[in-house]
Simulated assay, not measured.
Amino acid sequence: MDAIPELENLNLRERLERIERNLLIDCLRKNDGNQTLSARELGLPRRTFLYRLRRLNINVGNVDV
């Protein structure tokens, strides 16, 4: 299996953060920015979802929905 070129020079933690970030943003877009629905879809408590948004520096207002 070939690695995604943009991830080749990243360590495991950086790769996982990139994947998690993309997943959260994609879910927010799918749910028109609704954090409660996005958290539910991902099987996370809303508080955990919000914590992850802050940890990954995702500003919901800047996510193109």
Rank of each mutant, 00 (worst) to 15 (best):
R55P: 06
V60C: 02
L24K: 11
N22D: 14
M1S: 15
M1Q: 15
N57W: 13
D2Q: 14
G33C: 00
T36P: 03
R29P: 09
L56D: 04
N57S: 09
D2C: 11
I25M: 03
I25R: 06
N34I: 09
I58M: 02
R18T: 13
L23A: 06
D64F: 02
N31M: 01
L10S: 07
N11D: 12
Y51F: 03
R46A: 07
R55E: 13
P45E: 00
L12A: 03
R21C: 04
I19N: 15
N11R: 01
V60A: 03
R15M: 10
C27S: 04
E41T: 05
R52P: 05
V60T: 13
L10W: 14
L56N: 05
L10K: 12
N34L: 01
N11V: 01
G33F: 04
R47A: 05
R15Q: 11
T36M: 07
L56Q: 04
E20R: 12
Q35A: 01
L28V: 10
L44Y: 14
R40E: 09
A39Y: 12
A39W: 06
E6A: 15
G61L: 00
V63H: 05
N59G: 05
G33H: 08
P45A: 00
R40M: 01
P5N: 08
N22C: 11
R15H: 14
L23H: 12
P45D: 02
N11W: 04
G61P: 04
L53Y: 07
R55D: 07
L37S: 14
D2N: 15
D2H: 15
I25H: 10
R21G: 09
L56F: 09
L37I: 14
P5K: 11
T36Q: 07
T48S: 03
Q35V: 08
E14A: 07
N11G: 00
N9V: 12
I19W: 13
L10N: 02
L24E: 01
L50H: 01
N22W: 13
I19S: 13
R18F: 13
Q35D: 02
R40N: 12
N31I: 12
A3M: 15
R55Y: 11
P5D: 08
N59C: 08
L12F: 02
L24N: 07
N22T: 14
N11M: 02
F49G: 08
L44F: 12
R13L: 12
L42V: 03
I19G: 06
K30I: 02
N34F: 02
A39H: 05
L50E: 10
G43I: 00
R55V: 11
G33P: 08
F49C: 03
L12K: 00
P5Q: 09
N31R: 08
R40G: 03
R46L: 04
R46G: 02
E6H: 15
P5Y: 14
E41H: 04
L44C: 03
S38R: 02
N34Y: 09
G33D: 05
L53I: 02
G43T: 01
A3P: 15
R18Q: 10
L50Y: 08
V60G: 00
R46D: 08
L7H: 14
R29T: 13
R21S: 10
D26P: 02
L16S: 04
Y51S: 13
